[in-house]
Amino acid sequence: MDLEARLRTHFEASIAAKQATLAQSLPALTAAAKLLAQQLREGHKVLSCGNGGSAGDAQHFAAELTGRFERERPGLPGIALTVDSSALTAIANDYSYEQIFSKQVQALGRAGDVLLAISTSGNSPNVLRAIEAAHAQQMDVIALTGRDGGRIAAALTPGDVELRSVSDVTARIQEVHILFLHCLCDAIDEQLFPQAGESGS
Rank of each mutant, 00 (worst) to 15 (best):
T145P: 08
A153Q: 12
A130E: 05
G146N: 08
D160G: 12
D148C: 12
I131V: 15
R151L: 15
A130S: 08
G159R: 14
P158V: 13
R147T: 14
A136N: 11
H135Y: 08
E132M: 09
M139N: 05
G150W: 03
R151H: 12
T157D: 12
P158Y: 11
G149A: 14
G146I: 10
G150K: 01
A155I: 04
A133H: 02
D140Y: 11
A153F: 02
L144H: 00
A136Q: 15
I142Q: 04
T145Y: 05
A154I: 02
I131C: 14
G150Q: 09
G149K: 02
V141F: 02
A143P: 03
R147I: 14
L156T: 01
A134W: 00
D148K: 13
A136K: 07
A134C: 09
I152V: 12
M139T: 04
V141Q: 03
L144W: 01
L156V: 05
H135N: 11
I142H: 01
L156N: 02
V161S: 10
G149F: 08
D160W: 08
A134H: 05
E132D: 14
M139W: 00
A155D: 02
A134Y: 01
I131Y: 03
P158W: 07
V141P: 03
V141N: 06
T157C: 11
L144N: 07
A153V: 06
A143C: 09
I131R: 00
T157M: 14
T157G: 10
A154Q: 14
A134T: 00
L144D: 08
G149R: 06
Q138H: 14
V161N: 08
V161H: 04
M139R: 01
Q138F: 01
L156G: 02
L156H: 00
R151A: 15
V161F: 03
Q137A: 15
Q137Y: 00
A155L: 06
D148W: 08
I152C: 12
I152D: 08
I131S: 08
T145R: 03
G149C: 14
I152L: 13
H135F: 06
L144F: 00
M139A: 06
Q137L: 08
A130L: 08
Q137N: 11
Q138W: 00
A133G: 07
G146K: 05
G149I: 09
G150H: 05
T145V: 13
P158G: 13
G146D: 10
L156R: 00
A136Y: 01
L144T: 05
P158F: 13
A136V: 05
Q138G: 00
P158S: 14
I131F: 04
R151E: 14
H135C: 12
R151I: 04
A153Y: 03
P158M: 12
G146Y: 07
A155E: 05
A133D: 05
L156S: 03
D160A: 13
P158N: 14
A133F: 04
I142A: 13
A155W: 01
V141M: 07
T157E: 15
I142C: 10
G150P: 10
T157W: 09
A134G: 11
G159V: 07
A130C: 10
V161D: 12
P158K: 10
L144C: 11
H135P: 10
Q138D: 15
